[in-house]
Amino acid sequence: MIVTRMAGPSDAAELVRLRRLMFAAMNGRDEPGDWERTAEETARRQLGEPDAPLGAFVIDGDGGGADGGHVPHLAACAVGRVEQRLAAPGHPSGRFGFVFSVCTDPRYRGRGYARATTRALLDWFAARGVSRVDLHATADAEPLYRSLGFTEHSVPLSLDLRSRDDAR
């Protein structure tokens, strides 16, 4: 049986480690940097807030370190956020969810951990009155999300505000 749990502030560093693994798998390159410290601080703070809009579900790893010692780590995570927008006819609560990190440490892949953590996150969204959940999926992960009920939706335009001055 797969046991998921809600992440807490003490899981922040491991959530960032898994997020870095996710980006490396998506982009084919490892990109450490200042973003990790900022992400860890944000996760630690937001996971400690009552009724936080950030939700993270994790599966603990076996704890076996390279030297045989106990090194706690996470095997997998699914992290998302509730966003409060203005209500609309199809979304009377105005509450939307966005899944922005799903990752399984390579040592634990093929065990159903991504599915289990994503299901827990979707249940968390539903309990908060979220009416729609969005995510961006890689080609490899798309079958998982489709099997959970995700379908095509219009692709919004986006703007990287860091490059906005270049467009003027």
Results as ranks from 00 to 15, higher is better:
R162V: 05
G55E: 04
P89C: 04
G149V: 01
D166N: 07
E83Y: 15
D140M: 14
A87S: 14
G55V: 03
G65I: 11
T4A: 10
H91M: 11
D30Y: 09
A7V: 07
S158Y: 10
T138I: 10
M6L: 09
T42H: 08
S10Q: 12
R107K: 07
E152A: 13
L86N: 08
T38Q: 10
G65E: 10
A25W: 02
G90V: 05
V155A: 09
P50H: 06
R5N: 04
L144N: 05
C77V: 12
A25H: 14
A141C: 06
F57E: 00
A13N: 11
E14C: 07
A87I: 14
F150P: 02
M22R: 09
G129I: 11
R29E: 13
R45K: 07
A87M: 15
A167H: 13
A12L: 15
G55T: 03
F125M: 03
R85I: 02
V155T: 12
R115E: 10
D140C: 02
G55K: 03
T117R: 05
R146P: 00
A13F: 09
A127C: 09
E40K: 04
H73R: 15
D34R: 11
H91V: 09
L54D: 01
P9S: 15
M1N: 04
R44K: 10
A66W: 13
A52Y: 08
A139G: 06
S158R: 12
L47W: 14
D166Q: 14
S101E: 15
V16C: 08
T104V: 14
P143V: 00
A56R: 01
L21G: 06
R162Y: 09
A66L: 15
G64T: 13
R44M: 08
L122I: 04
R85Y: 09
A24W: 02
L54A: 04
A167C: 07
L54E: 04
G61N: 04
L148C: 05
R115F: 03
Y145T: 00
V99A: 01
G97V: 01
V130G: 06
M22K: 02
F100W: 15
V133L: 12
S163W: 10
R146G: 00
T117L: 07
T117I: 10
G28Q: 13
V16R: 05
A52E: 01
R128P: 08
A137G: 12
A139Q: 11
C77M: 15
R85K: 11
A114M: 09
G112P: 05
F98Q: 03
D123A: 14
G97Q: 06
E49D: 04
A76G: 10
Y108S: 01
V16M: 13
R115I: 01
I59W: 00
A76E: 06
G112M: 11
F96L: 13
P50M: 02
A141Q: 01
S10I: 08
D105V: 03
S10R: 13
D160E: 15
P53L: 03
R44F: 06
W35N: 04
V58H: 02
